[in-house]
Nucleic acid binder design. Structure first.
Lengths: 255, 255
DNA sequence: CCTTAATGTATCAGTTTGTAACACTCAGCT
DNA sequence: AGCTGAGTGTTACAAACTGATACATTAAGG
C-alpha cells in the first residue's frame, strides 16, 4: 500500500473547508486546512504536502498570487477552485502554474477524480503498459479458461469458438486483467491501464464497464467466476492466463 | 503520446477568443489568449507556443505588422484571420510570412483542419511512407486473409480472385493500413498517409472512406472484421499481412 | 436483525462513429 | 461550351458506446 497522501485545503469559507475535510478524510487522505495566505505558508513550512487545493478568491493575497509564489519554490500539484466563470479564469489559473482547476460549486467526487488524475500523472513515469509509439507491433495472444484473445486482431473467442464482440472499452479492460491475472487491481489501476494517465473519471465508471464485461464473458453474471470483486479493494481476474507473445513485426517480409 | 500543443489566440474580440478557447481546449490543446499586440508579446515572452492564430484587424498594431515582427525572430506557425475579403489580404498575409489564412467568419472545424495540416507539414520531415519522386517504381504486393493487392498494378483481388475495383482514395487508404497492420492509426495518420502533408481535410472524411472501403472488403460491413474501430483513437487493420517487395525497377530487364 | 458502506446495474444523456443522400469537382466526351 | 459519370467531401441523421444518476442489492460489523 502506498503512503497516505497529505492534502492542504486553502479556502476562506469554513463550511467548504469542513465539507472537504470530511469527505477527503473519509477517503483516506490526511488533510490540513488554511483560511488565508499566511495560514497557508505556516502549514507549508510545517510539513510537506502532496497536493494543494487552492481557492482563487481569498481575502488578502488571492489564489493566483499565492499559486505563483508557491511555484517559485515548489512543484507540488495545485488544484485551483475558481468562481463560476468563462474560460478566462481557467486559462489564468493554468498559466500561473496550477495543475488543474475546478469551478465552484463543484461535486466533491469530481475533485477526487481530478486529484487522482494528477497523482497518476505525477507518479506516472513509473507505469509500464502504456501505449508506446514504438514500431514493433504488439501482437499478443492470451488464453484463459478456453477463451482466446488476440490483441492485434482485437478479437475475442469464447470456448465454443464464437466471436464475442467487445467494445473498445471492454476490450481494454479485459487486456488490463489479462496482463495481471490473479492480482487484485484497484479501480485506479484499471483507469490507469485503460484510459491512460490523462483521463479524469469517477471510479464508479469502472464498475459499470466491469458489469458490462461480465455480462459478455460470464456464464452467470450474477455469480461471476472470471472477474471477482474484492470488497474495499477492487477486482481480480481469477483464471490462469497463458500468454503467447509473437515478436513478429506484424508483416512478413519476403523479397 | 505527443506533447500537448500550445496555441496563442490573438484577437481583440473577447467573444471570439472565448469561443475558440472553448473549442480548442476541448480538443486537447493548451490555449493562451491575447487581445492586443502588446499582450501578444507578453505571452510570447512568457512561453514558447506551437502556433499563433492572429487576427489581421487589431486596434493599435495590426496583424500584418505583428506577423512581420514575429517572423524576424521566429518561425512559429501562424494562421491569420482576415475579415471577409478578396484575395488581396490573403496574398499580403502570406507575403508577410503567415503559414495559412482563414476568412472570418469561419468554421472552427476548418481552423482545426488547417492547424492540423500545418502541424503535419512542420513535423512532416519525420514521416516515411510519403510518395517519393524517386525513380525506382515501388512495386509491392500485399497478401492478407486470402486477398491480394498489387501496388504497381493498382489491383486488388478478393480471395475468390475477383478483381475488386477501389477508387484511388480507397486504394491509398488500404495501402496505408497494409503498411502498418495491427496498429491503431489515428485519423491524422491516415490523412497524412493518403493525402500527403498538404491536404486540408476534416477528419470525418476519413470515416466516410473507411465506410466505403469496408463495404467493398468486408463480408458483413456491419460487423467489420478487417478494419476495426478503436473508439476515441482511430482504426486498426486486424489481419496479418504478408508483403512481397520486388526491388525490380518496374520495367523488367531482360537482355 | 439493523445500520452503514460498497457494489451492481437499469436507465438516461452526451459523445463518437456509421452511412445515406446530396453537392461539387474534374476528366473525358460530344 | 455543355454533358456525363466517377470520385470525394459535407450535411444530417441513426446507431453504438460511455459514463452519471439513481436506486437495488449485498456484505460487514455491530
Amino acid at each position: 500500500m502506498e503512503k497516505v497522501k497529505h492534502l492542504l485545503i486553502v479556502d476562506d469559507d469554513a463550511e467548504i473547508r469542513e465539507l472537504l475535510t470530511g469527505f477527503l478524510t473519509q477517503r483516506g487522505y490526511r488533510v490540513s486546512v488554511a483560511g488565508s495566505g499566511s495560514e497557508m505558508r505556516r502549514e507549508l513550512s510545517r510539513w510537506s504536502v502532496d497536493l494543494i487545493i487552492l481557492d482563487i478568491m481569498l481575502p488578502g493575497e488571492d489564489g493566483l498570487t499565492l499559486c505563483r509564489s508557491i511555484r517559485e519554490s515548489s512543484t507540488v500539484p495545485i488544484i485551483m477552485l475558481t468562481a463560476v466563470t468563462g474560460d478566462a479564469d481557467r486559462i489564468v489559473g493554468l498559466e500561473v502554474g496550477a495543475d488543474d482547476y475546478l469551478e465552484k460549486p463543484f461535486n466533491p467526487r469530481e475533485l477526487l477524480a481530478r486529484m487522482k488524475a494528477i497523482f497518476r500523472r505525477v507518479s506516472g513515469g513509473t507505469n509500464d503498459s502504456e501505449e508506446e509509439p514504438c514500431s514493433s507491433v504488439k501482437n499478443r495472444q492470451f488464453k484463459f479458461a478456453g477463451w482466446q484473445l488476440h490483441e492485434g486482431k482485437r478479437e475475442v473467442r469464447s470456448p465454443e469458438k464464437f466471436i464475442v464482440h467487445l467494445s473498445s472499452g471492454e476490450f481494454a479492460l479485459l487486456v488490463a486483467f489479462l496482463e495481471r491475472p490473479q492480482t487484485v487491481l484497484t479501480r485506479d489501476d484499471l483507469i490507469n491501464a485503460t484510459r491512460g494517465v490523462e483521463a479524469i473519471a469517477f471510479d464508479r465508471s469502472i464498475d459499470i464497464q466491469i458489469s458490462r464485461l461480465r455480462k459478455k464473458l460470464e456464464v452467470d453474471s450474477d455469480k461471476p467466476n472470471l472477474i471477482k470483486t474484492v470488497r474495499g479493494q477492487g477486482y481480480i481476474f481469477t483464471e490462469q492466463v497463458k500468454q503467447l507473445s509473437e515478436t513478429v513485426s506484424g508483416q512478413d517480409r519476403q523479397s
